[in-house]
Design a protein around this nucleic acid. Sequence first.
DNA 1: TCACCTCTGAAAGATATTTTCGGTTCGGTG
DNA 2: CACCGAACCGAAAATATCTTTCAGAGGTGA
Lengths: 297, 297
Amino acid sequence: MKESFGSPVGSLAAKVRTLAPSMTRSMQRVAEAVANDPAGCAALTVTGLAELTGTSEATVVRTARLLGYPGYRDLRLALAGLAAQQQSGRAPAITTDIAVDDPIADVVAKLAYEEQQTLADTAAGLDTGQLGAAVTALAGARRTDVYGIGASGLVAQDLTQKLLRIGLIAHAHSDPHLAVTNAVQLRSGDVAIAITHSGSTGDVIEPLRVAFEHGATTVAITGRPDSPVTQYADHVLTTSTSRETELRPAAMSSRTSQLLVVDCLFVGVAQRTYETAAPSLAASYEALAHRHRNNSR
Amino acid sequence: MKESFGSPVGSLAAKVRTLAPSMTRSMQRVAEAVANDPAGCAALTVTGLAELTGTSEATVVRTARLLGYPGYRDLRLALAGLAAQQQSGRAPAITTDIAVDDPIADVVAKLAYEEQQTLADTAAGLDTGQLGAAVTALAGARRTDVYGIGASGLVAQDLTQKLLRIGLIAHAHSDPHLAVTNAVQLRSGDVAIAITHSGSTGDVIEPLRVAFEHGATTVAITGRPDSPVTQYADHVLTTSTSRETELRPAAMSSRTSQLLVVDCLFVGVAQRTYETAAPSLAASYEALAHRHRNNSR
DNA sequence: TCACCTCTGAAAGATATTTTCGGTTCGGTG
DNA sequence: CACCGAACCGAAAATATCTTTCAGAGGTGA
């Protein structure tokens, strides 16, 4: 479970975004400075950075801790690494938000770029330990319930569809009442998964709580690792949060992020249960074939 | 003309070789350690490095000076940068398919990479002319019906949810019978969208045909631009098809691709109808706020 | 309004780095 | 062979930097 030295650098900007909501104002100022100018900040001492951001040394250290480093010293080292990487090169690419008068070709390019970014951030920020644990639980589950509302509801259904395809028993619930009444049935050996970007959607937390209290293994897929939903989660899988803009609501990037996590879960489970999963996949493919008209070729 | 902070790192090993002759024995030991394992040394304090090389702190500092840094602290930062560069240099090793025995971390990396690839391919292959035409049709539609089955059904719902959010009238159908009976209602000025990766899913083609014959504007989102569904489509939006493997079914990449297309449609429509879309987006956001428990911050 | 709780920075405390300084070694020299 | 001087080296003091503690400021809900 050790975190190797320079491990997931590059994800720093993403981490800042993910954690920003759980930061206090002054910590946000520090985090922002760091994310905006890694190179510049790497050249500063605690005191220097504190002055630059108009805060105190204590706050700087606290921020470093929140970002996952043992102290400022290590953050600074990571920053230096990041700066070197940035410098060594790559295209500055697309920076501006999507505007109302962007031509359609720009919209396509920007959306594709931002979603790629989201994927990279998510992959970088995903805790493989937690993921592995969740996979193990799923692979051995008697049954699995998945909760999600709105856009997350679609992700829940996606996961369910996939799990069914490899012969697991899974249900997606988007009706809060039914979700709770079903959650009561769960017990040890079952798995419950809640998907919510904000982490504070009551309708999704409630069934997870019930499942948790009945002894099921619970998993939360959320963009806010410190949000209420995690209280009742044995395993927390963090999705990335990207800047949202008027024309690109948060739902869009959170969906991309959630789907990647769901795919990872699925592939992980398929690996573990390969003996039974492979035939099931083949079988479901067969069964669908006759639903397709003979194609041109 | 002082040497700026992160300047020409990378030449460190060379610098060590050049300066080695002018170094004393213990300084050479330090320099050698640093050149051989930048990453490891970056993790050490002066004292640590002194012990490792069997020398004293003073010697370490002297060596750092000789190498051109103001002190050990700066050498250490440079070392961290160097380590990060080295690491990133040997990153893109992801070429193979996902294997049954891949560790979970590899699964995450490979999935993320492949989905990024899919996005890039889709964006590159998307015909902006067709996209623009579809957007225009949608923006002026009286109502919009979207057909999709299975995984594509979720994409259909995603599109519908988004369009509803900006005040358009849209329905997603995954029941083939209901889809057809609803399609009969469509007429000129309405839009029908079929989403199918294979392009030959009868249950989705049929309602599109009906809509087409009743004079609605029809759009197909498919990975096969020559497939049956395109016969009845005024506008064809092509999604990308990537190699499918046993553990990564086609559904996964087609979904990513379809979602990007759907997002483009949505943003395009939101731009065209900005006057009404913006307030609607804000309103739906407001309405959801009270569904979220008060969060920590 | 009051009690409470969180956030914040000043300053004390702990570490790390740099400097100082005296001992040691080695090569040359009388 | 004894002596001298210069360069080298590391222990420890001095300084800089980082971390922790603590009490006051400011906000929030009852």
